[in-house]
Computed example of a mutant assay.
Amino acid sequence: MGAVQPVCKGCGQPIWSNYLRALGATWHPEHFICAGCGQIIQGSTFQVHQGAPYHSECYNRQIAPRCVYCHRPLVGEFLVDYWGQKFCREHEQQFPHCAYCGRLVPPQQQEPGAEAIRCSVCRSSAIEGSTEAKPLFSRVIRWMNSQGLMYNNLRLSLDLCGRAHLNDLLREGNIGHSLGATTSAMYTQNGRLIRTEINGIAVLQGLPAILFQGVTIHELGHVWLIVNGIHQLPSWAEEGFCELLSYRYYQETNTHEGRYHSLSKERNTDPIYGDGFRRMRALADRVGFPTLIETLRTTKRLPAF
Results as ranks from 00 to 15, higher is better:
1 M>A: 13
4 V>I: 14
5 Q>S: 13
7 V>N: 09
12 G>Y: 02
12 G>S: 06
14 P>E: 04
22 A>H: 05
27 W>S: 05
27 W>I: 06
34 C>S: 04
34 C>M: 02
35 A>R: 06
36 G>T: 02
37 C>M: 02
38 G>T: 00
38 G>I: 00
42 Q>F: 00
45 T>C: 04
48 V>M: 04
48 V>G: 02
52 A>W: 00
56 S>W: 00
60 N>I: 03
61 R>V: 02
69 Y>F: 07
70 C>T: 03
72 R>P: 00
77 E>T: 15
81 D>N: 15
83 W>D: 06
83 W>R: 12
84 G>L: 08
98 C>A: 12
102 G>E: 10
103 R>E: 12
112 P>T: 11
118 R>K: 15
118 R>D: 07
119 C>V: 11
127 I>T: 01
129 G>H: 15
131 T>P: 00
132 E>Q: 14
133 A>R: 08
134 K>Q: 15
136 L>H: 05
138 S>N: 12
141 I>M: 11
149 L>H: 01
150 M>K: 08
153 N>K: 13
154 L>F: 01
154 L>M: 04
155 R>I: 02
155 R>S: 10
155 R>K: 08
157 S>R: 14
158 L>F: 03
163 R>G: 09
171 R>W: 04
180 G>T: 03
186 M>C: 04
189 Q>N: 11
191 G>E: 06
192 R>I: 08
192 R>C: 03
195 R>W: 00
197 E>T: 13
197 E>D: 13
202 A>Q: 07
205 Q>R: 15
207 L>M: 07
208 P>W: 01
209 A>C: 03
209 A>H: 01
210 I>W: 00
212 F>Q: 00
214 G>Q: 01
214 G>D: 02
218 H>S: 01
221 G>K: 03
224 W>V: 06
225 L>Q: 15
226 I>F: 08
229 G>M: 09
231 H>N: 13
231 H>I: 09
235 S>N: 14
238 E>L: 13
238 E>C: 09
239 E>F: 06
240 G>Y: 03
240 G>E: 01
241 F>L: 12
241 F>R: 13
242 C>E: 05
242 C>A: 13
244 L>S: 06
247 Y>D: 01
250 Y>T: 05
250 Y>N: 05
251 Q>Y: 13
256 H>G: 09
262 S>P: 03
262 S>T: 14
264 S>W: 03
269 T>L: 14
275 D>K: 12
275 D>S: 13
278 R>M: 04
284 A>Y: 06
284 A>F: 06
286 R>T: 09
287 V>E: 07
290 P>H: 08
291 T>C: 05
293 I>R: 09
295 T>S: 14
297 R>D: 01
298 T>K: 14
303 P>G: 09
303 P>S: 11
304 A>E: 13
